[in-house]
Simulated scan of single mutants.
Amino acid sequence: MELTFSTLNLGAALLGGLLSAGHCVGMCGGLIAACAMRHAQHQGHLPAWSPARVTPHLLYHGGRLLVYVCLGAIIGYLGSVADAASALAGARGLPQLLAGAAMLLMGLATLGWLPWNLERGFAADSRLGRLYARLMQQGSALSMLPLGMLTGLLPCGLHWAFQAQAAASGSALGGALIMSAFVLGTIPPLLLFALIAGWMSAHARQRLLQAAALLVMLMGGQLLIRGAGLAGWL
């Protein structure tokens, strides 16, 4: 099956991750900072960039990467199956059209232009929130790995938008690469935030979130154009 993604798509996913970092800080930055401060209590004599301080956060982001890549691979494979089925049914381009429409809707919802709460499940009193809190209270470096994996399962509109791009990639490999690029883009700013907590203002986070949402909508428009071409409408 021909892959429907390119280096440009991967670059856009990486940029989307970088722009989404402000949103990630707003959503779970408090928990990340709390973990950082918990570890810092036992490492007060160490500099911020020492391996002992950085390793727990690398484990955290490794857990995120693992979950996102697995989800991307699964969704990419399902997308390839849907693409083949639509071709057999004489409806070529339908998966791309659906994925593009989903990305546009996610972008609009992220901007607050649709009455959807895409992240309702992360409330502190929700099951996910309570499980996250219990893992955080353990305070060990190894507990950061399952914390990161759990974070990859939290409801997030931008995450879902890039999963739609993964579905349209045409293969499990394509989906995994799209999500890898997205997650890798979020890691440097989040790692910096964990080590220098509080560096980003709420206003700056909102501006980055808006930029990420616009990028998602541009990628969705690209998929709509591709789907329309495959369907013979262009």
Rank of each mutant, 00 (worst) to 15 (best):
L135H: 06
Q137R: 12
A124I: 05
S143Y: 01
E119Y: 09
A133V: 03
P146E: 12
R130I: 07
L131N: 04
N117I: 15
L114C: 13
L147E: 00
L118D: 15
G129E: 02
Y132H: 12
G148I: 02
S126F: 02
M149L: 10
S126P: 02
R134E: 13
L128D: 11
S140N: 07
L131P: 03
R120S: 15
A133Q: 00
L147V: 07
P115M: 14
F122G: 15
M144N: 02
R134A: 10
G139E: 00
Q138R: 09
R120W: 13
N117F: 10
Q138I: 05
Q137A: 11
F122Q: 13
L118P: 12
L135G: 03
G148V: 03
L128T: 09
A123H: 14
M144I: 02
A141P: 00
Y132L: 13
Y132V: 10
G121C: 10
L128C: 06
W116L: 13
Q137E: 11
D125R: 14
P146C: 11
L118A: 15
A123F: 05
L142V: 06
R134Y: 07
L147P: 01
F122S: 15
L114Y: 05
L118I: 03
R130M: 11
A141Q: 08
A124R: 04
Q138F: 01
Y132E: 11
S143R: 10
M144Q: 09
L147T: 01
Y132Q: 13
D125G: 15
W116D: 09
L118N: 13
L131Q: 12
P146L: 09
L135F: 10
G148C: 11
M144E: 03
F122Y: 15
L114F: 11
L150E: 00
L150A: 00
M149N: 01
L114D: 15
E119K: 11
L150Y: 00
G129Y: 07
G129I: 06
E119P: 06
L131I: 04
R134F: 07
R134I: 06
Q138T: 10
G129D: 09
D125W: 04
G121W: 04
L128H: 07
P115I: 14
M136H: 09
A124G: 05
Y132N: 15
L142T: 07
S143K: 08
L147H: 01
L150V: 02
S140F: 01
S140K: 14
L142G: 01
Q137C: 05
F122C: 15
